[in-house]
Design a protein around this nucleic acid. Sequence first.
DNA 1: CATGAATGAGACTTCATTCAT
DNA 2: AATGAATGAAGTCTCATTCAT
Lengths: 185, 185, 185, 185
Amino acid sequence: MKKPNAKERILETAGELFFQRGYSGVGINEIIEKAGTAKASFYQHFPSKESLCEAWLQEMHDRSTDTHARLLGSDLSPQEMAAAYFTHLADFLKAGDFRGCPYSNTGAVSDENCCGILKLIRLHKESTRKFFREIASLSIPDAARAEAIGDRLFVLYSGATAEAQNLKTLWPVEIARDAAVELLS
Amino acid sequence: MKKPNAKERILETAGELFFQRGYSGVGINEIIEKAGTAKASFYQHFPSKESLCEAWLQEMHDRSTDTHARLLGSDLSPQEMAAAYFTHLADFLKAGDFRGCPYSNTGAVSDENCCGILKLIRLHKESTRKFFREIASLSIPDAARAEAIGDRLFVLYSGATAEAQNLKTLWPVEIARDAAVELLS
Amino acid sequence: MKKPNAKERILETAGELFFQRGYSGVGINEIIEKAGTAKASFYQHFPSKESLCEAWLQEMHDRSTDTHARLLGSDLSPQEMAAAYFTHLADFLKAGDFRGCPYSNTGAVSDENCCGILKLIRLHKESTRKFFREIASLSIPDAARAEAIGDRLFVLYSGATAEAQNLKTLWPVEIARDAAVELLS
Amino acid sequence: MKKPNAKERILETAGELFFQRGYSGVGINEIIEKAGTAKASFYQHFPSKESLCEAWLQEMHDRSTDTHARLLGSDLSPQEMAAAYFTHLADFLKAGDFRGCPYSNTGAVSDENCCGILKLIRLHKESTRKFFREIASLSIPDAARAEAIGDRLFVLYSGATAEAQNLKTLWPVEIARDAAVELLS
DNA sequence: CATGAATGAGACTTCATTCAT
DNA sequence: AATGAATGAAGTCTCATTCAT
């Protein structure tokens, strides 16, 4: 009755469930049941539900860091980079039933006690902000203006994600993409 | 020890708690305790926790409708209207410990079963979107372009609120305000 | 499926179980099962397992206070009082399968976090000590000597209870009773 | 990172923890963590937590047997022996944060299933009783009376230890020592 | 001889809700 | 209209133990 790789199965299962229904909407019981693990096996690998959430956020952050680097390392123009990113965002949202940004959603149910979680959320958000600033700096010579435009892209990105979730539609992403392309012209 | 207006006290108490800690982070027990009501009195006035949430969202929506009408009825220029709105948003966020948008936060923990809640969220969001479109239409003659710019303002507003919550800072709001003023020039 | 008087049944059931197997050896699940209550019913009446323990200790303390008062108010001689008390102790231990002193047993598994429990234990022990001092003062004119003898009776009583538990025998109680009578002569 | 003498380290660590917080208050996980051993290494040396407890009690019993023999073999008078023993007890209790008698504390959380543990407790208690009887026999010619007085010393010793633990004070030990000296005069 | 992953059972506590009065 | 007691289900987490390597 022993099954190996419990940790991986738990992390993968939890990732899906947290994404679909939110950190507070998913219990340990459901996670371990769907992962086919015993409760104690879970706590062997993760000291708490909170730490599981942190592992999930960290894993996604690593992946998004890769995506950012790949885009910035491509031979696309800044506008094309932004457009590609928003297109990728639209695909992601559509595929995920418009569940929005996992970081923002998690932050919505985390109080100041969850400092590990909150730190990861801020880390990811600042990292994404930096990504947009770098794109902006590629097409805008003035450094200060480039930073401001980068931040504007970041805010558009965040709003597009949030409202696509709230309204279950993709038009906010399209609006944001158009605005981004305009800002980078 | 009889206290009148139990329903109002419950609604007010729940509003504060839901706002501060999120719908899923507050239990009925805490609400009735802080409101000074009995368990069964609560269920006399609200058939479920969900319906209490709906009443809260509805109440806030009514207030924001008033705010929108007052702004649109003022003699401010479109840019001034937008600027005033974002300034008001900054004040609201600062006063509320950067808890962000109650609607988005509630949506983050509601699944498709909570259709009443989701409907109110969409109602409010569409109403806010319409508010920004009306502002845009005041300064942009072309109707289609005005709608697009209004939507852009709406997305900026949403992103500013979300990231102010995530990063516990006001710069996203300032970025959004600057962008809004620029778009309306 | 509703049953009234849950609190009383819980307290009675818990008392028996705590006494028989110790505070740490009995779980909430067993208590509520034997009491025929739902788990949430338990927590309606007692905020925690610890507070249930406190209620149990308090209840026993009240009973022992009555016993002390009744003995001291009787027309027995001091020696007869002490003898009666140790006889009563022997009966109690025999009836209870030699489980010893509930207070000492509970103290053996309570750390400094359980300050409410520890306070009740000390309260009861000091109260019992006072009871023995009062008996001693009835037959010993010198106040200081009476207090010392009273304390000696108290220590004998405690040791008799403890070793009757450890050795599952009554001779320690008989030894203590003989010593007590001798000390009061 | 290999560490030798895993068994000894486990026994030593467990001894400290069992003494400080009681048998039921310490888990295997904490023991092996503090001892720096792996779970399975523990079960290689001890078939169960219960058997670890037995090893601990046995070890302490051996040490106390030595102490008894050394005292009885000394050239002290019976009164001096008793006084020295109670002084040693006071030092032990003060040093150990008034945790009382490990045997009695362990017995308080052991039911009839733990027959190995209970047997060791009885063994140790009878051995201590015998020690006091031997002291008494040194100063009391009549054999029967010596045995009774020895038992009385034993009960005083037990009560002093128990109440020093309950009340976190040393006066019960002093009372018992005074009584012991008086009984041996 | 040593290890770390896996486990079933159970720990204490809280959830939103309903009942009888 | 108002109440406090009662509830089933679920919450997070820990227990002593065993397994394959």
